[in-house]
Design a protein around this nucleic acid. Structure first.
Lengths: 159, 159
DNA sequence: CAAAACTACGTAGTTAAATACATAAATAAA
DNA sequence: TTTATTTATGTATTTAACTACGTAGTTTTG
């Protein structure tokens, strides 16, 4: 176990993944406890379309911060669930315009109270002496400013 | 982008994965900058065998905190790299005992200074006003004590 | 000591993301 | 107005983890 404490690059990495998987599973179960058949991974697309109404594939991908192939597979699932639908853009024939179905819009109404609870619980779990979200923000910002690799190479050259 | 800020369960989850992937990639590149052909994901096994010398598959899995199938695939890679080797346990014929090869031991000597730098950079990145490792520990502990699901169900029933 | 339960290992299949590549439409440039 | 470039979408493949299952030794129990 103390590998984790002494380890280099992987320590944080794997633990973050675990944590995220757990949260995802519990999220799905919590939806189920409301009789809602919804997977947490669908949230970003649904939420985006709830606010933006009509978007193309790439636009959604950018909004949710995934690559477009990943986004396409989410969209496929959501179309299968009849929560979203798509039609061709008449102006630009390459584009596929996505929007919520009435079923999708109804579902959102049902999910809103669930999201409320989830959001509070998440706060409860992540808001400690060291706030997880803040810690992530701060780490992301540091990396944005100068990557792990750049920092490491610099430290190496200083020796 | 503000999906991320307002989102429920996925916000943290996906960002943690991204962060970890970036660190992993940079880790690999940094090894390469020393002319070392080593993948960060191999670290836990190598490090464990460096300290424990001889362990079975399941023992390693427990040490590194992975399932045994995942561990087996790591072990396969490392055997292909000739960094570790295995022999049958004479007492318990089901067991396969793993240990470092001389090549593996040599490599560790070369990697030690690299690990030092990495470890420092990781500290630099993760140690902010909100310490990422600490934040993870704290979040993990909270979940250990009461899961996301339990907390959510409780909050739900209190309404 | 034979049957049952447990343990160690391995394989197969799944998942959620990514990259890399392919195609077709739209736009810009010669 | 062809040709080249860029953009939008889609498919195929890869990766790193997982769960589920099967088999073969080992240990425990009746």
């Amino acid at each position: 176990m103390n590998i984790i404490d002494e380890s280099g690059i992987l320590a944080i990495s794997t633990r973050l993944q675990r944590l995220s998987e757990q949260l995802r599973k519990d999220g799905a179960l919590f939806y189920k406890s409301y009789g809602i058949d919804f997977e947490p991974k669908w949230f970003p697309v649904i939420y985006t379309l709830h606010h933006k109404e009509i978007l193309s594939v790439v636009e959604i991908a950018n909004e949710i911060g995934y690559t477009h192939p990943s986004t396409i597979s989410l969209l496929k699932e959501l179309e299968k669930q009849k929560l979203i639908r798509s039609k061709k853009d008449k102006i630009d024939e390459r584009k596929r315009l996505l929007s919520l179905t009435p079923k999708g819009q109804e579902l959102i109404l049902k999910m809103k109270p669930v999201w409320d609870v989830m959001s509070n619980v998440l706060k409860e779990i992540a808001d400690n002496q060291n706030n997880l979200l803040q810690a992530i923000n701060e780490a992301e910002n540091k990396i944005k400013h100068q990557s792990f690799l750049q920092r490491a190479l610099q430290l190496k050259s200083e020796e």
